[in-house]
Nucleic acid binder design. Structure first.
Lengths: 245, 245
DNA sequence: TAATAATGTGTACCTTTTACATAGTAGGAT
DNA sequence: ATCCTACTATGTAAAAGGTACACATTATTA
């Protein structure tokens, strides 16, 4: 049989043993890190914990952990969330992977960042663990690893995401006033919005349920309380066509 | 000295040796896979290659490779693109990681998906390599690994992205007619758009440069040719506030 | 009871989107 | 040459949505 060049017959040698192939692959340690945002005192906060590492003594880091053998990334992130906050009914979204070779002082570790939002008052933190606490996003600095970069990126992700999806309601009590809702948007987007137009916008979406209750214990005229109509939202997710850049 | 519980004094034992810590971490094989889109004959295409694996004999897969020791994910993706298409001046965006434990028949391999767009006519493919070719996105099926899922996700990413960023121009010739631009948007978004409103939209953005040339060799009245004004776009990137879901 | 600090609604204006109409021009068939 | 075809190119009116305002109302508290 006449020899063919590799260019002509590239399929000659298919790899039979996939297991053997994968065993020869280089391997890297992989972690997940969770940027868990909350809202309190009209400020956006993020859950941080003191670093375990002497190298980063006194610096805060995000909640994270190693990805276990055969564990999905999503599952690893949910596990971290559950272990630290007791929550397991919270949404969690992958933002992106961070892979700078020097991002970890112990050698190469790649991490996948996740973002989550939760209502601070709904969750008792296990605060005995390494000074776990809510830290204002705007005053964060000197974080361990590249966690400041991760927080910044997750925050940008959140700013964009909250405008297109009803994420914000995860940060608020079940019943909330329009003022609380607006405060949330203003804090996250770092803008000030016209109160009347903001209300009109949400009114026109028709996704808030007026529950005929009023705010209690506010030092001024109380506002109406609303719930978000998740059911209606799920039924009528819009597909969005609008070229604009 | 009185003993304290772990809850009271959690910082007692900081980890001194970060290197040792990382050495104990479980490790996983990591790859990048690139969904590289092109546009031809009014169809959105994606670059695929026949799988090396006997297990997936005859099935197409995306272009991908192992991430090397100390290589950034972005660099690995650019390397794949360069090796396969000869291009190194193309943008490439991370979409997300895929980590299902059974996604690779050889055992656990996590992959990070990247998305890129390029002009089919600008790049000579090294088509001797395993039947590398452009495949219509709409008729793709039976891909190796979870690559169909990756393509689907990258396609969704692209649909959203192209509405907010001027990505589409990477798929077109440098000089293009408005009809070509509209065909591109219609193909990617899978909608039909009103021609007059489409033109008005781009006219109002004022980012197309009329180069005073006409189409050649079209079997009908030729249209004007334009270039995209990347320079102006870079100067005037808008920050977008518009709650809507 | 008056000042304060909110809530709750309305309106006029402007911009953008949508739906649709008409005129013009190159190529090809006859 | 003339007409048909298949586009380009532009315009316009109505609807929808966003912006910038003003004013009356209602709890609280000083």
């Amino acid at each position: 049989m006449k020899r063919k060049t590799a260019a002509e017959k590239p399929h000659e040698h298919l790899i039979k043993d996939a297991k053997k192939l994968v065993l020869e692959y280089p391997k890297v340690p992989l972690t997940v890190d969770c940027a868990i945002f909350g809202f309190e005192e009209n400020k956006l906060k993020v859950l941080v914990i003191k670093s375990d590492l002497e190298y980063y003594k006194g610096h805060y880091s995000l909640l994270g952990d190693i990805v276990k053998d055969n564990e999905e990334l999503d599952d690893a992130a949910y596990r971290v969330l559950k272990e630290r906050t007791g929550m397991n009914d919270v949404f969690l979204d992958q933002v992106r992977a961070f892979s700078h070779p020097d991002r970890h002082p112990g050698g190469r570790v790649i991490t996948v960042a996740y973002c989550s939002l939760l209502n601070i008052n709904h969750h008792q933190l296990k605060i005995h663990d390494n000074d776990l606490n809510w830290h204002s996003v705007s005053t964060l600095k000197d974080m361990a690893f590249d966690h400041k970069e991760i927080v910044d990126e997750c925050y940008s992700w959140l700013q964009k995401r909250i405008q297109e999806h009803p994420l914000g309601f995860n940060l608020l009590p079940e019943k909330f006033s329009l003022r609380e809702l607006q405060n949330l948007y203003e804090a996250i987007l770092a803008v000030s919005l016209d109160r009347r137009n903001f209300r009109k916008k949400f009114a026109s979406m028709d996704l808030l349920i007026d529950i005929n209750e009023m705010e209690q214990d506010v030092p001024h005229r109380p506002g109406k309380l609303y719930k978000f109509n998740f059911e209606k939202y799920e039924k009528s997710k819009r597909k969005w066509i609008g070229i604009d850049f």
